[in-house]
């Protein structure tokens, strides 16, 4: 692909399960494109230099700073943003745990944090607190002091584990 400067090239990507199209200049940051062209305003921009983590989205399932990617790089990729998490207007377990543990105040950093947690819990299903804090070190939250976030992530990890073990147990034909 060759996208000339100052011209808008057509790109296609899968955003939260839907195929979307748009035209963009090479220099456009992915976060700007997602927000202003595709309407995914849940993606927040806090620093544009890859430190604050507010713009974190999943690129092919991998948590990435969308300010450190060009929109043209997302061509043909799968992008998931915070808008993908709730199903049928019901928040997922992580979102619910964030609310229960008062893991957000202004909510600006939260979208990015949730997306990091999504990938992290797939990679590390039974984290300890130090691992959760290590994962969160890629995000800046100015409101909460991180306490509620850490608790919410640990609780969801625990719930998913016990849910899975229950499910495994019930799937076991010997377990009657």
């Amino acid at each position: 692909m060759h996208a000339p400067a100052e011209q808008r090239s057509e790109i296609e990507l899968e955003l939260n399960g839907e195929t979307r199209h748009g035209r963009t200049e090479p220099r456009t940051q992915l976060c700007d494109f997602l927000r202003h062209d595709l309407g995914a305003t849940g993606v927040h921009v806090g620093c544009e230099h890859g430190v604050c983590g507010a713009c974190t989205v999943l690129v092919d399932g991998v948590a990435s700073r969308s300010c450190l990617m060009l929109a043209v790089q997302a061509d043909g990729r799968r992008i998931d943003t915070v808008e993908s998490l709730a199903r049928d207007d019901v928040m997922n377990d992580l979102q619910q745990a964030f609310s229960r543990h008062h893991a957000l105040q202004c909510g600006f950093c939260t979208s990015g944090i949730l997306m990091s947690c999504v990938e992290f819990l797939q990679r590390v299903p039974t984290p300890d607190e130090a691992q959760v804090r290590d994962m969160l070190s890629g995000h800046l939250c100015r409101c909460t002091g991180y306490t509620g976030i850490v608790r919410a992530v640990l609780e969801v990890a625990g719930q998913r584990q016990s849910g899975e073990s229950q499910q495994n147990a019930s799937e076991n034909p010997n377990d009657v």
């Binding site: 692909m1 060759h2 996208a3 400067a5 220099r27 940051q29 043209v72 061509d75």
Partner: peptide
């Protein structure tokens, strides 16, 4: 805080 223009080539 936006980049200046450039050509982009995906090799």
């Amino acid at each position: 805080m936006k980049a200046a223009s450039f050509d982009y080539v995906r090799a």
